[in-house]
Each structure stands twice: as C-alpha cells, then as structure tokens.
Amino acid sequence: MAIIGNPKYEERIKSHLAKYETKRSAVMPLLYIAQEEYGWVNPDGISEVAEILNLDPTQVKSIAGFYTMYSEKPKGKYWLQVCTDLPCALQGADDFHAWLKDELGVEEGGTTKDEMFTVEHVMCLAACDKAPMLQCNFRYVENLDQDKMRGLLAKWRAEAANGRG
C-alpha cells in the first residue's frame, strides 16, 4: 500500500496540486487520500503526504491532528458518527446514540470486536431537520429510528461479507 506511485491516486493528486497557488494548500485533500488508502491517517500516510508536498512531517501531523475528520487511529469498516448536538438532541438523538452503542456493545469512540463499526458522537452536521441522523464514512443517513438503523446495520454487514462496502 502506498499513495506515491499508486495509479489509483495519480490523477487526483495531480489535480489537487494544480488547484492551489502553493503545494502546502493540498495538504487537506491529500490527507483524505492517505486516509482512504490506509483506513486512517497512519505514519506512512503522513510521511508520504509530507514528501509529496515538500513539507516537514511535523506540519502534516499537525494538520491531521487539528481536524476531527482525519482519524489518527484505526477505525471500524463503518465509521458511524451520530450527531447529538442540541437540535438533534431535542429530537431524541442522545437516546438514539446510547441505544446504538448498546446495540453494538461499544463505548463512546469504540469499535466492535469484528472491527466492523466504530461509534462516536459529533457536533452539528447541518441536518437538524432530519434528526436523528448520522454520517457513515462521511455519507449522511437521515431521519433514523431504531428499526431503520437495525436494517442498515444488517445491510452493511452483508455488504462487507460480500466484499463490497
């Protein structure tokens, strides 16, 4: 696994570098690519991004640490981020979040033993009229309830078993 020299990313990296006035500006899109490749922003990803951008790895690590959407630890295959901010909470998001952790048997921020799901709560995702909601690997799933969620968990498990997802 690598980003540098990986044909899968070549075009994307090039187009990101072309967008900005400085190489450094591409650090955020490139960190997303590193995360995509390794599942999280791991030390290899940091050094590769640093190399591409001619930055000190400390600078790249610093950026990765500031933003919550870069994970500096491995996550489950499905990274579930439940919005429990005020508007969602007024619609029962706290209960939904607690239920989901129970359902999967994990603590806040924890990952299921099969490394399938990581659950954590996040701040407002601009979907306050569609609570409860969550984002799964950065894709929104809205207007949830327990039944709907059970169905989704089953669907994702099946997808993973089929090697998709």
Partner: peptide, 8 residues
C-alpha cells in the same frame, strides 16, 4: 475550485 474542510 472546491476545497473540503475536515471537521472544524
């Protein structure tokens, strides 16, 4: 151009 933030 578009640019994506990352949760901040």
């Amino acid at each position: 151009y578009t640019h994506l933030g990352a949760g901040a």
